[in-house]
Simulated assay, not measured.
Amino acid sequence: MITGGRIHTAEGVIAGDFLDVLPLPDGTTVLLQGDVAGHGTDAGLLAVQIKSAVVAVLRLDPDPRAAAAAAWAVVAPEDERFTTLVIAVLDPRGRRLAWLNAGHEIVLLRRADGTVDELGTTGPVVGPFITDPDGMWDVHDCSLAPGDLVVLATDGLTDARDRTGVMLGRDAVITTVAGAGADPRAVVGALYRAIEDHGADWDRDDVSILAATVKQDDSRATAPRSRPAS
């Protein structure tokens, strides 16, 4: 597994976005990303709490639904904040990708031939308006072949606006992913350059991007080899 990831903070040193790459003992690798509403210190502190809860649960049980329920438990009922969340489980040996998408903006699967599939939502954003998390989110799955690339990004990417207020948009993101090749680090770099070329205001919102690809030898691996993205 090869991964690449980056977070740009809109305010200060702490972001309301969070991401992680979690290799598990069964040989699967979990990609995790979320976006707490707003940015700055308050959103950043809640993001840290949610990420910690989700990672702790995934280490015990790789069921994305249990992890989403843990995220929900962190959100205070009286708080108006919510978070989007995506949990993608890559199984190179079984050649499957399973994902839970709780209202997350960009969840893409770039096939080795350059075509790009959008992996849609499987439930609502995680927030205090949910009274019972049981059965709230589904987990979908699809095939995963060597050379396929998973790309996750928060809405700070698609909503990046130039000086006239025009957003970068989903189509530009998908086109960039399709043309950037299969190297996760190159794809992350290309998407950040797309924001720069668009003339966006970097202080408007946090932007986080995470990408991972399955190598040919990953399907024969007996232990995960990936490391958390920086």
Score class of each variant (00 low, 15 high):
residue 114 G to L: 00
residue 157 L to S: 03
residue 93 R to I: 13
residue 109 L to H: 08
residue 45 L to P: 10
residue 75 V to M: 02
residue 141 D to F: 13
residue 9 T to Y: 01
residue 213 T to Y: 00
residue 106 I to R: 08
residue 168 L to E: 07
residue 154 T to H: 01
residue 105 E to I: 08
residue 213 T to I: 02
residue 211 A to T: 02
residue 204 R to I: 12
residue 135 G to E: 03
residue 2 I to H: 15
residue 102 A to R: 00
residue 99 W to I: 07
residue 219 S to Y: 11
residue 108 L to K: 02
residue 96 R to G: 01
residue 29 T to K: 04
residue 218 D to E: 06
residue 180 A to W: 01
residue 139 V to G: 05
residue 146 P to F: 03
residue 181 G to K: 09
residue 212 A to H: 00
residue 34 G to Q: 09
residue 156 G to Y: 02
residue 200 A to T: 05
residue 20 D to K: 07
residue 87 I to Y: 03
residue 76 A to G: 11
residue 180 A to D: 05
residue 114 G to E: 04
residue 100 L to G: 04
residue 104 H to A: 05
residue 185 R to L: 14
residue 200 A to V: 01
residue 76 A to S: 13
residue 135 G to K: 07
residue 200 A to P: 04
residue 35 D to I: 08
residue 26 D to N: 07
residue 93 R to P: 07
residue 18 F to V: 12
residue 144 L to I: 07
residue 196 E to Y: 09
residue 95 R to Y: 03
residue 142 C to L: 12
residue 122 T to H: 07
residue 64 P to T: 01
residue 106 I to Q: 08
residue 19 L to A: 03
residue 157 L to G: 04
residue 154 T to Q: 00
residue 203 D to I: 14
residue 56 A to N: 12
residue 70 A to M: 07
residue 80 E to S: 15
residue 25 P to R: 10
residue 28 T to Y: 03
residue 59 R to H: 10
residue 108 L to C: 01
residue 122 T to Y: 06
residue 84 T to S: 09
residue 105 E to M: 11
residue 222 T to I: 15
residue 52 S to V: 12
residue 225 R to L: 13
residue 172 A to K: 13
residue 13 V to S: 15
residue 202 W to N: 09
residue 154 T to A: 05
residue 82 F to V: 09
residue 146 P to I: 12
residue 212 A to Q: 06
residue 57 V to I: 13
residue 154 T to R: 00
residue 200 A to W: 00
residue 158 T to V: 12
residue 212 A to W: 02
residue 195 I to V: 15
residue 31 L to T: 07
residue 60 L to P: 10
residue 32 L to Y: 00
residue 13 V to L: 15
residue 187 V to T: 01
residue 202 W to K: 10
residue 130 I to Q: 10
